[in-house]
Computed example of a mutant assay.
Amino acid sequence: MERMAMTLEKFTRSLDAKSLPRVLQIQSGYYFQGSVYELFGREWSFSYGELLKIIGISVTRLIVELQSEGSKSMTVDLSLDYPGLFRIVADKRPYASIQEIVDSVCISPECLGQPEFRCPEELQLAEGTIQAEESFRITALRTKHGDSHVDCEVTRKDSKHIFTVKLSHTGEFYECADDQFYTLRELVEWKMPKGRKRTRTHCNTDN
């Protein structure tokens, strides 16, 4: 069996929560806070070969790279309770298929879990055609008779049209611009794609 060692940070970034629980074997490393291995304020190391069973992942803080024109970028830690509001900068990298979108972003009946995309080419579907560059909102992920697809909603002249797109559908799908305001907690819970960095702008709402 092939084995590969990696840091816990790298592992959790690539981990799909649906695959939990997962068992890890310690190769080397230290744990700093909040562990049963932390006694009397001292730092303890794990022993080689010990097993850890990961049953869940929760984000408690974000490591943020601040970028300003004409100055060097700097990295800071932000708590999820940070009181500011943020806007999302649309990802310029395309998704190669509907399956990749489903694997990367959160999709749910909740409004925050309905991402919006566009495709530079027409999508010929059973219910009709989604025009090139026409935005569509993914509203649900469904499986019927072993075949999975997403429900997509397109608004035209104040009327909504529903389309179904198979996960196997390929193409170039780009994230649409989003003019909504979000808290850090909302971004983490709903708007953080797996395996991709997310760029945001801080919004000054003081008037």
Rank of each mutant, 00 (worst) to 15 (best):
residue 61 R to A: 11
residue 61 R to G: 15
residue 61 R to E: 15
residue 62 L to G: 02
residue 64 V to D: 01
residue 66 L to C: 08
residue 68 S to T: 06
residue 70 G to I: 10
residue 71 S to H: 14
residue 75 T to P: 00
residue 75 T to M: 09
residue 76 V to W: 01
residue 76 V to C: 07
residue 76 V to F: 10
residue 79 S to W: 09
residue 79 S to E: 04
residue 80 L to Q: 01
residue 82 Y to R: 11
residue 82 Y to W: 01
residue 83 P to K: 09
residue 84 G to E: 07
residue 85 L to V: 12
residue 88 I to Y: 02
residue 88 I to C: 08
residue 89 V to H: 01
residue 92 K to S: 13
residue 92 K to M: 14
residue 93 R to T: 14
residue 93 R to D: 01
residue 93 R to E: 15
residue 95 Y to F: 14
residue 96 A to D: 07
residue 97 S to E: 03
residue 98 I to K: 05
residue 102 V to F: 02
residue 103 D to V: 02
residue 104 S to F: 03
residue 104 S to D: 01
residue 108 S to F: 02
residue 109 P to M: 13
residue 109 P to L: 05
residue 110 E to S: 11
residue 111 C to L: 09
residue 111 C to K: 12
residue 111 C to Y: 10
residue 112 L to N: 03
residue 112 L to S: 04
residue 113 G to T: 06
residue 113 G to Q: 01
residue 115 P to I: 11
residue 117 F to S: 00
residue 117 F to C: 08
residue 117 F to L: 00
residue 118 R to Y: 11
residue 118 R to E: 06
residue 119 C to V: 02
residue 120 P to N: 09
residue 120 P to V: 06
residue 121 E to N: 15
residue 123 L to N: 06
residue 123 L to P: 07
residue 125 L to G: 03
residue 126 A to Q: 08
residue 126 A to R: 12
residue 126 A to T: 09
residue 127 E to V: 00
residue 127 E to M: 11
residue 127 E to G: 00
residue 128 G to W: 11
residue 129 T to P: 09
residue 129 T to V: 15
residue 129 T to S: 09
residue 130 I to E: 00
residue 131 Q to I: 11
residue 132 A to Q: 12
residue 132 A to L: 02
residue 134 E to H: 02
residue 134 E to W: 09
residue 135 S to F: 05
residue 135 S to H: 14
residue 137 R to I: 11
residue 137 R to Q: 14
residue 138 I to H: 06
residue 138 I to S: 09
residue 138 I to T: 12
residue 139 T to C: 08
residue 139 T to N: 07
residue 140 A to M: 14
residue 141 L to T: 00
residue 142 R to Y: 04
residue 145 H to C: 13
residue 145 H to Y: 14
residue 146 G to Q: 09
residue 147 D to N: 14
residue 148 S to I: 03
residue 149 H to L: 15
residue 150 V to I: 15
residue 152 C to W: 06
residue 152 C to A: 14
residue 152 C to T: 06
residue 152 C to V: 10
residue 153 E to C: 12
residue 153 E to A: 03
residue 155 T to P: 04
residue 156 R to L: 08
residue 157 K to M: 10
residue 157 K to C: 02
residue 157 K to S: 15
residue 158 D to L: 07
residue 159 S to L: 07
residue 159 S to H: 12
residue 160 K to Y: 00
residue 160 K to D: 15
residue 160 K to S: 14
residue 161 H to A: 10
residue 161 H to L: 13
residue 161 H to Q: 12
residue 162 I to L: 09
residue 162 I to C: 06
residue 163 F to W: 08
residue 163 F to E: 03
residue 164 T to P: 10
residue 164 T to R: 10
residue 165 V to T: 06
residue 168 S to C: 13
residue 170 T to P: 01
residue 170 T to V: 12
residue 172 E to T: 01
residue 174 Y to M: 06
residue 175 E to F: 15
residue 175 E to K: 07
residue 176 C to L: 03
residue 177 A to W: 09
